[in-house]
Nucleic acid binder design. Structure first.
Length: 739
DNA sequence: ATTCGGAAAATTTTT
DNA sequence: TTTTCCGAAT
């Protein structure tokens, strides 16, 4: 039997197929047998009554399990599910927790309010937006929309971008949202984040003002607004606040260490009456300060809530002791923290490996080969992950895995819903659902030939003046279209007419307005597919994406819900589409940024690019607290590992001009005692590849190959084993084992 | 005045 | 790989 906290228990490992149907452990009284399933620390949290609770939950200490059981316990004790609010950091977390509660108890847990702050804020705001001067169907600006709008505002504010480079929309947008998320003035944020702009603060504030105005005009909220407006609503309207305080009798917050000031205020407002507030977090895993995460929230919780009870979960069910020892030693270098020492319940295991590689290509080579070997040993691919600081660190690994046909799944970089073609198609849904959506109209219009920025703006000016822009657009309006665009305009307006359900009498009896999924198919067939064929060289792949989007849209009946969920959807394609349904169809290795990996675990973990300037990242070090946050990030990466940890780094990297440059091992590794890990050394198999199908790369190699990478003062002993005849041009790695 | 094509630049982390 | 900037063409 698996202990508490361990995930998937009865996974079949051999060839045979054996299913273990787990049934909820039930006590004699008919309820859940909590004391059998939880350790004493966890049990305390689950059984604790109301009032403010602070739970410091170390990595791998069964936090999700504890929260899940607490939710179940509340419901079993007669708390109505709809009066529970569960606030999480990602959509995935809330889905997972609620799903797990559902397997524990019979009640309909879908009635529990659960989701991210942004999601819940959105739901609340839709009901009361008029109080804030917004209509009910305001649109949500994602990062790109917001950036475009800020760019507009820079022009609008009449700033001359040429004289002393004024920041681009992208930079300014992140500055403004940082200012909002940290609840500080624009000037403050500038001094902190972009001191080089000190003498242009007035201009930045001008842009910020214009941005605020524009958002009101076009009835839009960006991500930060979803939080600040929710707070404003609750703080400024006593009746609304009372309504939600009454509705949510219990509030549970996950990842409390990563909440920002606004989020903490929202929690305080919601929990202000009854104070049945459970906040769970780990200060050592606070890694979102760039997004405004406010460390103080968790530190000062006991002060803000006198009488709050403090719980600690320090038993780690995930990792072997060598991994925890390493992680504990690492985090010890941080000054600001609650001292805590994670201890394993699992016992000993192999030492973590430090793997110096010649350069990134060899790093990728090593990882691919090692993955294959571990796979041969029976470890499923889905139990292995490659973790990195920044998305582009994964490029070489991606290429190598592809080359060897190892299936993998990427959890970083551009999210599915942010890709250009996805946003193009959804623009059509947006403008039909909300004909006042200026950004959507312009985006769609600019897809037509001979229509660019200027013409799109002109057309919009005509449209906005209409009583019913949709009908007008469909009715004609050809006068305002430039000659060169007339032909495609006909297609365009026919499409809009059908999307709006104006063209045809509803044949599925639904009144003629198509469902979101139908709209997407329609846009694809009638217009966008041919557009893509002309515009992209990988059109078929993108058609596939859009079909997947249509698939995803099937679960929605109203375009409005579809659109807001889309905007708030952080996850990548594969998830979200199948909640609880079919599992991943194919076993695959996970490639993930460490940020995305938080809360997850694998038997085998490779952390790559561990050189100073990549990890810790150069740019993060500019901030005085940057190093500690980077170290926490490193700590998060380490503690994802159950059994086998590989710390990899290239000894040579190329700088911007393709010059070979020695890299320095990350300080996060070099500051650790050397007996906590073992050093492997890679040897290229020098035997010539058999046959003439020699490596296509040629043997010339990069210029730095001459320089032997045997630097470093620690003498390394390599035990060469006889070459494996089955592995012709493989890489051999050996390690010092001091017996 | 606008659009469009090619060249150059830029990539930390996320709701 | 995608966005942004700039000059040529319409």
């Amino acid at each position: 039997m698996t202990g508490p906290g361990s995930s998937g228990g009865g996974r079949p490992t051999g060839g045979g197929r054996k299913y273990t149907l787990k049934r909820p452990p039930v006590s004699r009284s008919g309820g859940l047998a909590y004391e059998d399933e939880l350790n004493p620390q966890q049990l305390d949290v689950v059984m604790a009554g109301g009032g403010p609770l602070l739970v410091i939950a170390g990595a791998g200490s069964g936090k999700t399990r504890t929260v899940t059981y607490r939710l179940a316990r509340l419901v079993e004790d007669g708390v109505r599910p709809e009066s529970i609010l569960l606030l999480t950091f990602t959509n995935r977390a809330s889905r997972e927790m609620l799903h797990r509660v559902a397997t524990l108890i019979q009640y309909d847990v879908r009635r529990i309010w659960g989701g991210t702050f942004h999601h819940v804020g959105n739901l609340i705001l839709r009901n009361h937006s008029a109080l804030l001067g917004f209509g009910q169907n305001f649109t949500i600006l994602d990062r790109e929309d917001a950036t475009d709008l800020v760019s507009d505002c820079i022009r609008l504010a009449g700033v001359d971008p040429k004289e002393k480079h004024f920041p681009k929309g992208r930079v300014l947008e992140s500055l403004l949202s940082f200012s909002a998320d940290t609840d500080r003035g624009v000037a403050d944020a500038v001094m902190d984040r972009a001191p080089y702009l000190a003498d242009r603060i007035a201009e930045v504030e001008g842009v910020a003002e214009a941005y605020r105005t524009r958002k009101k005009e076009i009835q839009a909220m960006d991500f930060s607004d979803l939080l600040t407006q929710t707070r404003a609503l609750l703080a400024g309207h006593e009746d609304v606040r009372a309504l939600y305080q009454e509705r949510f009798r219990h509030v549970l917050v996950d990842e409390y260490q990563d909440t920002n000031k606004i989020q903490a205020d929202i929690i305080d407002l919601l929990g202000g009456g009854h104070k049945n507030l459970t906040v769970v977090g780990d200060d050592a895993q606070s890694i979102y300060s760039f997004r405004g995460a406010h460390f103080e929230n968790i530190i000062t919780f006991p002060d803000r809530y006198p009488g709050a009870r403090l719980f600690r979960l320090e038993a780690n069910y995930r990792s072997t002791q060598p991994i925890l020892t390493l992680a504990n030693a690492s985090i010890l270098h941080n000054r600001r923290q609650f001292k805590k020492e994670l201890a394993t319940t699992r016992g000993a295991g192999p030492l973590p490996a430090l793997v110096p590689c010649r350069e990134v290509l060899q790093q990728a080579d090593f990882i691919a080969q090692r993955i294959l070997e571990l796979s041969d040993e029976g470890i499923p691919l889905s139990e292995m992950a490659v973790l990195y600081r920044a998305h582009y660190h994964s490029m070489e690994v991606q290429m190598e895995l592809t080359r060897r046909g190892i299936p993998f799944e990427i959890r970083s970089g551009l999210r599915f819903f942010e890709q250009r073609h996805i946003k193009d198609v959804t623009a059509f849904v947006r403008l039909v659902a909300c004909p006042a959506d200026e950004l959507a109209w312009k985006r769609a219009l600019k897809l037509l030939p001979r229509i660019g920025e200027a013409t799109a703006a002109r057309i919009w000016n005509v449209l906005r003046a209409q009583e019913d822009p949709l009908a007008f657009a469909c009715g004609g309006g050809a006068e305002i279209i430039p000659r060169g665009a007339r032909e495609s305009w006909e297609v365009f307006r026919g499409l809009i007419a059908d999307l709006a359900g104006l063209g045809r009498p509803g044949k599925e009896g639904g009144g003629g307005v198509p469902l979101p999924t139908e709209m997407i198919s329609l846009v694809l067939e009638r217009f966008y597919e041919s557009y893509m064929e002309a515009a992209f060289d990988n059109a078929p792949a993108r058609v596939e994406d859009i079909n997947q989007l249509a698939e995803f849209a099937m679960q929605y009946e109203s375009p409005e819900t579809f659109l807001s969920d889309l905007a708030l959807m952080g996850s990548v394609a594969a998830e979200g589409t199948a909640p609880g349904g079919t599992e991943a169809p194919e076993e695959s290795v996970v490639l993930s940024s460490i940020h995305q990996a938080k809360g997850l675990e694998w038997r085998v973990v490779f952390m790559i690019w561990l050189t100073d300037s990549h990890f810790p990242h150069q740019r993060a070090l500019a901030d005085p607290d940057g190093e500690e946050e980077e170290r926490r990030l490193f700590y998060v990466g380490l503690t994802r590992t159950k059994d086998d940890l590989h710390l990899c780094y290239p000894m040579l990297e190329s700088d911007s001009r393709r010059m070979g440059v020695f890299s320095r091992l990350s300080r996060f590794v070099s500051e650790l005692p050397e007996d906590l890990y073992e050093r492997w050394s890679l040897e290229e198999d020098t035997a010539p590849a058999r046959g003439e199908d020699a490596p296509p790369q040629g043997e010339g190699g990069p210029p730095w190959e001459v320089e032997s990478p045997k630097k470093g003062d620690s003498p390394q002993r390599t035990l060469s084993r006889p070459a494996d005849p089955d592995e012709p041009d493989g890489l051999r790695y050996e390690y010092d084992d001091d017996f």
